[in-house]
Write a protein that binds this DNA or RNA. Structure first.
Length: 543
RNA sequence: GCGCCCAUAGCUCAGUAGGAUAGAGCGGCGGAUUCCUAAUCCGCAGGCCACAGGUUCAAAUCCUGUUGGGCGCACCA
């Protein structure tokens, strides 16, 4: 609806001043209470350019606004223009929602392949709560981008080739050797969690001492076993969390396919490399980095940096035009080098967007719970979901914008889980649905949009709810554009507040404007259902 | 030291790409239920938007500096 109003205003501006160079300056926002339905403040912006007062501009332009969608137009506070919408505007809009349902909010396929890569935690341990935060941001963003018509794929990058994996294998080996009756020494900096022991026990249970030959453990085989075990665990946790990936991409596959070697060649041929101290360096300072980066170590081993470059080249080769990587704050330092690598390989500058989410701090009984895979002292995502439930966990993670720290108070979450806003939204949904159900049972027939007259809905609560619905499509578009998925729960809460305010004060069934109110509630249910689907929150028919 | 993120009500946080009187939840106080789900609603109290300057008709929002908290600055991943 906002888009439509913008168009109407722009036409009026052209008609008034004969030019449209100011087009982008026009913004339509919801009007403050009691000042109509929507508003714009563009006359202030035009004042300097046109050498006229905002008041005058508002007057001149509003005289040229001619649209059946607008019932009333008024000027306030020296230059704001406020609109009151006509019955036709509501009828058209609500009518479309009624007939097309979710599809009304879906944009036409753009034919653009977009990849969202997230979680991508090393398969050296269970997912922790921070991975949950990345998981929900990625999952919901993917949903949102799909709605906007992009061809979206969700991908998990499995780092199964680095030195961390060796350490992981050696940690398992320690317990495995002991189970097989050998002496063993726990590796320095090894992974200490209880799960390491469990993997070793599982390995021993299944294969006894098959992976020890002449007292020497088969590191690769143990690594593979541990990796598969961990990935299986991770997939289970994600499923419980409602997160599913289209593609599981293995780092090791880049070695096998020769793409790592290929990438070295690309960089060497680009002329952006040099040899120093026996290593191959990339001149990333040419692309805004503050130091050059090593691609191949003096030992001949490729660095993580190089492999990541190969990985992103691979993404490009698969036809993605846009790649969104979602990383924890600890990877912050990698953004600039990564973008430099993209440019160094000759890929477009806007190919990669990175979303950084800040650390999740867990609190229990007022004290912070320290989390580290190395000490083994951490709360897993699994445990969190068991404590507060999938819906609450998703909603809570989603609620804060990615770039602010998230304090998750477990004690509070456990104690007050029934006060969690997710229940508010689910309850409201069930309640509204019940009206439609009751109306059906009572034999109340909805006669269709043509038989409704929204100008009859003049109560404050009715207008607020109607206008909130009219903004949703534009809201979703702008949220997708800025990747600000944290606004989704707020959007749903806002809608619910308005719905509940209406519900509390006015009856639907048997009321004078029953037709119009049924239409309003029906549209609210459709919109709320859509937003809950986007967030991956379960819709309950009764609570 | 350098770079980035954060600082808004007692607590947890929003603040729609500079706009009208800065909002919500929780907590506190006071109300509402013969009626579609009270897991609800309405009202009151609570603010130097960290601090100091600047830009603008207009700043919580943009710029500069200061303070406090966090993250990053590897031939780790």
């Amino acid at each position: 609806m906002i888009k439509k109003l913008e168009k109407i205003i722009n036409e009026a501006i052209i008609k008034t001043y004969g030019r449209d160079t100011l087009r982008e300056q026009v913004e339509i926002t919801p009007a403050p209470e009691g000042m109509g339905d929507f508003a714009t403040s563009f006359p202030f912006k035009f004042a300097k350019i046109l050498h006229k007062s905002p008041q005058k501009i508002a007057e001149e332009v509003s005289e040229n606004v001619k649209s059946e969608l607008i019932k009333e137009i008024s000027i306030a506070k020296g230059g704001y223009i406020n609109f009151t919408l006509s019955d036709i505007a509501y009828k058209e809009y609500i009518g479309e929602i009624e007939s097309k349902k979710d599809e009304f909010f879906r944009e036409k396929p753009k034919g653009i392949k977009v990849q969202v890569e997230f979680v991508s935690a090393n398969p050296t341990g269970p997912l922790h709560v921070g991975n949950g935060r990345g998981g929900i941001i990625g999952d919901v963003l993917a949903n949102l981008l799909k709605l906007q018509g992009f061809d979206v794929k969700k991908e998990y990058y499995v780092n199964d080739a680095g030195s961390k994996m060796d350490l992981f294998a050696d940690s398992i080996t320690y317990y495995y050797l002991k189970l097989c009756g050998y002496e063993a020494k726990f590796p320095e900096e090894g992974y200490k969690g209880e799960y390491i022991k469990e993997i070793a026990e599982d390995l021993y249970f299944k294969f006894k001492d098959r992976y020890i030959k002449d007292g020497k453990p088969d590191r690769e085989a143990i690594k593979d076993f541990g990796k598969d075990y961990m990935i299986w665990q991770i997939k289970k946790s994600l499923a419980k969390f409602g997160v599913f990936f289209d593609i599981w991409f293995y780092e090791s596959s880049l070695y096998k396919s020769g793409e790592v070697e290929e990438t070295i060649k690309i960089f060497k041929e680009s002329g952006y490399t040099y040899e120093k101290d026996g290593a191959l360096w990339f001149k990333s300072t040419l692309f805004g980095d503050d130091k050059d980066r090593v691609l191949v170590r003096s030992s001949g081993e490729p660095t993580y940096t190089l492999v990541d470059a190969a990985y992103h080249k691979n993404k490009w080769n698969r036809g993605f035009k846009k790649v969104i990587d979602i990383w924890g704050a600890d990877h912050f330092g990698h953004i600039i080098p990564m973008k430099a690598l993209i440019l160094g390989m000759g890929l477009p500058k806007d190919f990669l967007d990175v979303i950084i989410y800040q650390i999740v701090h867990l609190y229990e009984n007022g004290k912070e719970v320290m989390m580290s895979k190395h000490t083994g002292n951490f709360i897993t995502l699994d445990e969190l979901i068991d404590e507060v439930g999938k819906d609450a966990a998703r909603f809570f993670f989603l609620l804060k914008s990615a770039d602010t720290h998230l304090n998750f108070d477990l004690t509070l979450a456990k104690k007050e889980s029934m006060d969690n806003p997710v229940f508010y939204v689910q309850y409201t949904y069930a309640r509204l649905l019940n009206i439609l159900k009751k109306a059906g049972e009572a034999g109340k027939k909805y006669k269709g949009i043509e038989q409704t007259d929204f100008s009859l809905l003049t109560e404050r609560e009715e207008r607020n709810l109607l206008n909130a619905i009219l903004s949703v499509k534009d809201n979703l578009k702008s949220i997708a554009k800025t990747y600000a998925v944290n606004k989704l729960p707020f959007l749903s809460i806002d809608l619910c507040k308005k719905a509940n305010a209406f519900y509390q004060k006015h009856k639907v069934i048997g009321s004078e404007n029953e037709q119009e109110r049924l239409s309003l509630i029906n549209a609210t249910v459709i919109v709320l259902s859509l937003i809950m689907d986007l967030m991956g929150i379960e819709k309950k028919e009764r609570m």
